[in-house]
Write a protein that binds this DNA or RNA. Structure first.
Lengths: 335, 335
DNA sequence: CCAAATAATGGGAGCGTTCCCAATACTTAT
DNA sequence: ATAAGTATTGGGAACGCTCCCATTATTTGG
């Protein structure tokens, strides 16, 4: 009753050949007679032979697996990026294993351990908002396993990265607010351990400077991206003696929360206070009023990261250059 | 320069023990002296020993991997379900590998092949809207690999399944519309190869029957869930000589598309035409007007499916009962 | 027609584990 | 003190595959 999987040895025995020969044709080795090849291929097909990947990996020391670790699945960003990556990865003949760290540093470390244990041939990662220590990622580089960071990156890790031009996107978003006549532009920023928050913040400053608007630190609040805090900060901003007439939010979810808070106070958007987000989540065009935002080529980010990784896997790793690929953003003007 | 991974043999040699003993402690076998155990454990820790899972899998014939195949990542449903499943699965000491079929039958089949090749110990799947043939899934059952279907299921496959009570949710949604005084309730249904569409459709019929409202087949349209078609159907419905005064949509994205179409024609919601969705996507409370919908315990679905699967993996598989677990829904009344 | 090259196949070690069985050391009851 | 455990450790086959090396069969040039 034992449903013993068909092995290479079974085939060899059956066809009166050696397992070397069978292995050769099954791995596409050239030195084998055309007839023999066909014979083996046909038979393998007939008995629905499935190669045992563990055995293969054990000897080749390659898993044919690529790992990806993302902080969350809830917003549309990472799922979309994954779709992009998945696409490139599958067509290169690799399999993708996905893990989500749930914005927890602990979980991220444990995910990394799993990836290591599964001996992924390469790793794609976007870190959590808590991550300040990168040893668990550096370990991959140390072991010669290619790794590329995307979106949420660690700037001083010497590995390839792909990001969008946060600085520029942010600059243009704020510039837009200025051009429609806003003078006191607040910024709900992300935690400053995330490079992404820093870059967006800098874009914000730069735009203000360019148009000679005094920077008022009172209007800049960085927070930990826990959505339920937005309301508090927003109320704080609106209670200022000199409240803002515009808000640039680090991302769309933040902007949307802010909009709810603003509406609740009976203020009009954009007349009383204009709001601009960042990321062009699907939701941003559906809410009322439709949100002006900076759109990022999300799928493309995933694709690019995957391409870079695949390239690294194929190439000699010894001379990694820590290239950073920056994709550009687009300002989508709505209300 | 060779960064040879530390093996069990290395440890054995180093400590002057046999690899059997080392293996024993590393797999938590009892029969080993406490001192020796500590010695080995400490040393393993010190040299950062990582067990080679391929070798283990090769001999034990278990991968410690659980696979999950979902049709898409874009809506929030599957990501949330995955989070639930992931949770249970990791804490049971398994790893999860995720694949998305992109609503393509072909891809689903190929995903299944990958899962098979990776010898997952169990499989969770929600099929695409195209899937009508289930041989690729039945193959798992045949090989004795536990499989549980969730959400998008195949009713006549003899495996455990977890679904929500679509019939009841749908019944209550339509009942709500009737109670607020609507008489001509349209239904944008899903393709009828999906059991989920059929169940929701039946709930719709049942509610109408209970309140003695004549069923008008003209008001029921099933479509393939391609969002851009919603507008067309919606316009068609509104152009009827006797147009509907309410719409029950198969899911929230459909409802939201419909709302856009309705708004574009200058009709008021819910006065002219009321709309109810299904799934309580985050977006449904943010749009204007907030959408009344049927909420499903999404994370719970993932958790339940995972629990059932884990149970199957532990248990003797020979006497599978094809239990179907039905979780209940809740009507969320908004506008 | 034979040596030498080429083509096709076979043999077998090794990848890192697990786990059964045997060997050894140490107790305990008679 | 001796037989008969019990606790602990070691030996080694097996998992299914890849790949180097050796062997055999076939062809080619001189």
């Amino acid at each position: 009753m034992k449903s013993h999987q068909i092995t290479i040895t079974d085939i060899a025995k059956q066809l009166n050949l050696s397992k070397s020969t069978v292995s050769r044709v099954l791995t596409g080795h050239p030195n084998v007679n055309a007839e023999t090849r066909k014979l083996i291929l046909d038979y393998a097909e007939k008995v629905d032979y499935q190669k045992n990947l563990f055995a293969t990996s054990l000897v080749t020391q390659k898993s044919n697996l690529i790992g990806i670790i993302v902080p969350e699945f809830i917003s549309s960003f990472f799922p979309k990026a994954i779709v992009g990556a998945q696409d490139k990865i599958s067509s290169a003949g690799f399999n993708l294993i996905i893990a989500q760290s749930n914005e927890s540093y602990e979980t991220e470390v444990s995910n990394a351990r799993v990836m290591m244990a599964n001996q992924v041939d390469g790793l794609l990662v976007s870190v959590t908002k808590e991550t300040r220590n990168f040893d668990h990622l550096k370990a991959f580089k140390r072991k010669g396993i290619p790794i590329v960071l995307f979106n949420r990156i660690c700037e001083d890790m010497d590995v390839p990265k792909v990001v969008v031009d946060d600085y520029d996107g942010s600059f243009r978003a704020v510039e837009h607010l200025i051009k429609i006549g806003k003078k006191r532009i607040a910024h709900l920023a992300g935690p400053d351990n995330l490079s992404i928050s820093r870059r967006r913040l800098n874009g914000y400053y730069a735009a203000l400077r360019k148009y000679n608007i005094a920077i008022d630190e009172e209007l800049v609040i960085s927070y930990d991206l826990t959505m339920d805090k937005v309301k508090i900060y927003m109320n704080h901003l609106l209670n200022l003696t000199n409240p803002p007439d515009a808000l640039f939010a680090i991302n769309d979810p933040t902007a949307i929360e802010a909009i709810q808070a603003i509406k609740k106070r009976g203020l009009r958007i954009p007349e009383d206070i204009a709001v601009v987000g960042f990321s062009n989540d699907q939701i941003s065009e559906l809410i009322e009023p439709a949100l002006t935002t900076v759109s990022q080529p999300v799928t493309k980010i995933g694709e690019t990261a995957a391409e870079m990784l695949l390239h690294l896997i194929k190439t000699d790793i010894s001379n990694w250059k820590s290239i950073t690929k920056t994709l550009s953003t687009e300002l989508i003007i709505r209300k």
